[in-house]
Simulated scan of single mutants.
Amino acid sequence: MIAAHGLRWILTVLFVVVTAVSLARALRPDPAHAAAERTTHALHAAMGPAMAVMVWPRGMDVPGTPQAAFFALAAAWFVAAALFRGRWIWQAAGEEPHPRTHTILHALMMGAMAWMVLAMPGGMNSGHSAAGAGSMADMPGMKMSGPGAGMSMRLHGAFHAVAVVLLVVFVAVGLWWLSRAFDTARLTPEPAVASASGANRAESAALRRAVDAGCHGAMALGMAVMLLVMV
């Protein structure tokens, strides 16, 4: 939960936009669109609403264990994809193959999401009630500051250390994804070596890769902000 009302809305809009783009990519009517790529976009589309709900006080009324189990399984799926399907995990027709490194980053994001759902007291009493505040104050690894709906959560001990490490990692990952998005968006096919239709297809593929990288970067930085308010 985030106490600053304005920041709640900024992150909510960010996660909703990422969800919409991921869902559109997952449902894109293209028979050449690889099934594993669709699964990736679908999992990120599921991650967006969970992150958006987490920033609001009522988000702590949502059971955390089912969410953690879902995202742990999603992380395991990405790990399995990286380990058992070779260096290139999937490739849609006319598009650059998806490297294993990206899949590991997806696994890291899903695993961190599972950890955050459990670290932030999901499934416990509401954070805006007096009883809820007392219950959450007694949770291991959590400290509460401020009364009622304006209170914020702070991690301590080992929970704090993990959050700091994840914060640094997601800032770096987010900036890396965004730099990749900007670099990819600048790429255009050489007209001398491609037909007009081929050039258009290449440009469309480059734009899709740039949008994907931008969404992943935005999600990673959004997670970094969530972690920042917890430390």
Rank of each mutant, 00 (worst) to 15 (best):
A72E: 12
A42G: 03
A36F: 06
L105C: 05
I89S: 01
A35S: 11
T19K: 07
V79R: 11
A20W: 12
M109I: 10
A20I: 13
W56M: 14
V13A: 15
A32K: 04
H41G: 03
A80M: 10
R28C: 04
A42Y: 01
L27N: 06
R58E: 06
G86D: 11
L27K: 03
A82H: 09
R38L: 06
M51E: 04
H33W: 14
A76R: 11
L14F: 03
L105W: 09
T65L: 14
G59C: 02
F71R: 06
F70W: 13
R25I: 00
T19M: 15
R100W: 14
A45H: 04
T12H: 05
H106D: 15
F15C: 09
A76K: 02
A75F: 02
P66K: 04
D61P: 01
W88E: 08
T65H: 04
R28F: 13
V17K: 02
P49I: 06
L73T: 07
V55C: 05
F15Y: 15
A107G: 11
F70A: 15
M51S: 01
F78H: 15
R38E: 10
H41V: 03
V17Y: 07
H41C: 10
P29W: 06
H102D: 12
Q91W: 00
T12D: 06
F15P: 02
E96Q: 14
G86M: 06
P49N: 09
A24C: 09
L11M: 14
I89E: 02
G94H: 05
P99K: 03
A93K: 12
P63E: 03
L23F: 14
A72V: 02
A76P: 02
L83A: 15
G64V: 06
P29Y: 12
A72P: 00
A52Y: 12
Q67P: 00
A52M: 03
P63V: 00
W56T: 05
P63W: 02
T65M: 07
G59I: 03
A76N: 10
R28A: 15
A50M: 06
A80C: 06
R38N: 05
A80R: 13
L27Y: 05
E96G: 01
A82N: 04
T40R: 09
H33Y: 12
L105F: 09
P57T: 04
D61Y: 05
T40E: 11
R38G: 06
A69F: 08
G94C: 10
R87F: 04
T19A: 14
F15H: 15
D61S: 14
E95W: 00
W56K: 04
A50V: 15
L27G: 01
F78V: 00
D61G: 01
A81G: 15
M60V: 01
I89H: 01
P57Y: 04
W56I: 02
R58I: 00
F78G: 08
A107S: 13
R85G: 10
V62Y: 13
A42S: 13
L11W: 04
R58K: 00
